[in-house]
Amino acid sequence: MKTPHVAASALAAALALGLVSQAQAQDKTAKEKCFGIVKAGQNDCANLSGSHSCAGQSSKDNDVGEWKFVAKGSCKAAGGLSQEEAKAKAKK
């Protein structure tokens, strides 16, 4: 390969990586945590009580302390709770 081709390939790769990270950032902003709608084993990360810290470790359906990312604005329609609502409900 000639030097200009190597440089062009490197530049294309760098630009592609920038686009991927930008797309991931936009994807995260278009989602919100939704508590209380998770099926057992399908949570996205740690629960409110701190009894586990990994995805996929929820043990029962619709546990108020478990959450998953959903499209922003769709949590209430799915019957879910915000983090503040879930904390208040868990204290009861």
Rank of each mutant, 00 (worst) to 15 (best):
S51L: 07
G56R: 02
K39I: 07
K72V: 05
M1E: 06
Q26D: 13
K76F: 11
G79N: 03
E84L: 08
A55G: 05
A8V: 02
N62K: 15
K60T: 12
I37A: 06
A88H: 10
A86F: 07
A90R: 15
E84P: 05
Q57H: 03
N43P: 00
N47Y: 02
S74N: 09
G79A: 04
K72T: 05
P4L: 06
D44Y: 08
K76N: 10
K33R: 15
S58C: 02
H5C: 01
A40F: 10
K33C: 09
N47A: 02
A16W: 08
D27H: 14
G73N: 07
S74Q: 14
L11F: 07
K31R: 15
K31I: 08
K33Q: 13
A78K: 15
A23M: 04
C54M: 09
A40P: 08
Q83T: 05
S51G: 13
A12H: 00
G56M: 01
A30Q: 15
M1W: 07
A12G: 02
N43Y: 00
I37Q: 09
A71V: 15
Q22F: 13
G65E: 14
Q57G: 00
W67I: 01
A90Y: 13
A14F: 06
S74K: 14
S58A: 05
S82F: 12
S9E: 06
K33A: 07
S53C: 01
A88K: 15
E84H: 04
A77W: 09
K68W: 04
K89E: 13
G41C: 02
E66M: 03
C75P: 12
D27A: 14
N47I: 00
F35T: 01
K92H: 10
D63V: 08
K89A: 15
L17Q: 07
G80D: 11
A13E: 01
A55F: 01
K60R: 13
A88L: 09
C75T: 12
D27G: 03
K76M: 12
K33S: 06
S21L: 06
K91Q: 10
A8C: 03
C75M: 12
K33I: 04
Q83S: 03
L15A: 11
G73A: 05
F69R: 13
A14W: 07
G56A: 00
C45N: 15
E32H: 10
K60G: 04
K39L: 14
K92F: 07
G79K: 09
S9L: 14
P4T: 05
G50P: 04
V64Y: 05
T3E: 12
G36I: 04
L15G: 14
G50A: 03
A55Q: 05
S58K: 03
K31M: 12
H52R: 11
A71N: 14
E66A: 11
G41D: 00
S9Q: 08
H52T: 05
E32T: 10
